[in-house]
């Protein structure tokens, strides 16, 4: 039963007003990079890092890279893998302040303090 279902569903874009780019049918974008960005911010705030410019994240070949600046001019660097749970490393002024998964950070941040 799976085959005809997929065939019919695959026909859907063809009927949608002659779209030029089927890829545009993807749902709301930005989830993965936002997951990494939020986890980085959660860690920086939890560790009371004084932030001048909060890290901005970009997609790179093997995941995501984020850079920002502390109030005293030190560089904040975060790197993360490209797939959930997003293995994450954060350094401030060259010192590693966090290694773990971004997904775990998000899940913990949403909970009440136990």
């Amino acid at each position: 039963m799976r085959y005809p279902r997929l065939v019919a569903f695959a026909a859907l874009p063809l009927a949608l007003g002659a779209c030029s780019q089927v890829a545009s049918l993807a749902p709301v974008s930005g989830g993965p990079i936002t997951s990494v960005r939020i986890a980085v911010y959660d860690v920086l705030v939890a560790q009371e890092v004084p932030i001048l410019v909060a890290p901005q994240c970009t997609a790179v070949t093997d995941g995501f890279s984020c850079t920002g600046t502390t109030m005293d001019g030190q560089e904040i660097v975060a790197t993360a893998s490209g797939a959930s749970p997003y293995a994450l490393t954060i350094t401030v002024g060259g010192t590693t302040i966090f290694q773990g998964n971004a997904k775990d950070v998000l899940d913990e941040s949403a909970k009440v303090a136990s």
Binding site: G31, T34, S35, R37, I38, A39, Y41, D42, L44, V45, I51, A54, L106, D107, S109, A110
Partner: peptide
Amino acid sequence: AANAFLDNPTLLVGSPLD
């Protein structure tokens, strides 16, 4: 909504900087 596991609810909260 907080338990809607298909929707990644813990992401949607944002960070304290948001």
